[in-house]
Amino acid sequence: MENGGKLYYGIKEVAEMFDINASKLRYYEKEFPTLQPKKNRSGDRVYTQDDINHLKEILVLINDKGYTLPGAREYIKTRDANRREHVVYINKLKRIKAGLEKLRASLDKQKPQEVQPKQDDDEPEEVL
């Protein structure tokens, strides 16, 4: 749901996008701690594209997939925890990869010893 390059949207604009009223948006802010639009100097809520995408995800869980509010909240919480855990594993794997690349580079720098084959091994044995 990309919209014309705007950085911020007012609560009425967002409510119209989803065909819900502004009070429902404020209610979802209370129910979902992950949905926290910023407020401008005059105290009005301003939604970023990320806020709108997150709201869309919440509405899909509730309206399309049949989640209850607590169920949707738990789903998002679990998903976010899994993402954080995956980031930890990805970072560990990146460090391992960097170490292996460093090891490979150091091995590539070493000049391999010339291996001379034995004269005996090159000639087949005669069978009588």
Rank of each mutant, 00 (worst) to 15 (best):
L7N: 09
K39H: 10
R83I: 15
Q116C: 09
T68R: 02
N82V: 07
L103E: 02
P70D: 02
T48A: 03
K24P: 00
I90K: 08
Q119W: 12
R79E: 12
V60D: 01
L55E: 04
Q110M: 11
R26P: 07
V60P: 00
D80W: 01
R84E: 15
Q119G: 14
V115F: 06
L25Y: 07
R45Q: 05
A105S: 00
E85K: 15
Q110D: 06
L25M: 08
V60K: 00
A98M: 15
Q110N: 07
S42T: 15
Q113P: 13
E85V: 10
Y28V: 03
Q113T: 14
A22K: 09
K111W: 00
T34Q: 04
D121S: 13
G71Y: 07
R41C: 02
L25R: 06
K39D: 09
M17W: 01
R73V: 05
L55G: 05
N63E: 08
I62P: 07
N3P: 03
Q49Y: 00
K77V: 03
F32L: 08
L103C: 01
L128I: 15
K94W: 05
G4M: 00
P112D: 03
E29K: 06
G66R: 04
I58N: 03
G43S: 08
V14E: 02
L128R: 14
S106F: 04
G10L: 10
Y75Q: 12
E57V: 00
K111V: 06
P33F: 06
Q36V: 05
V87K: 13
I62W: 04
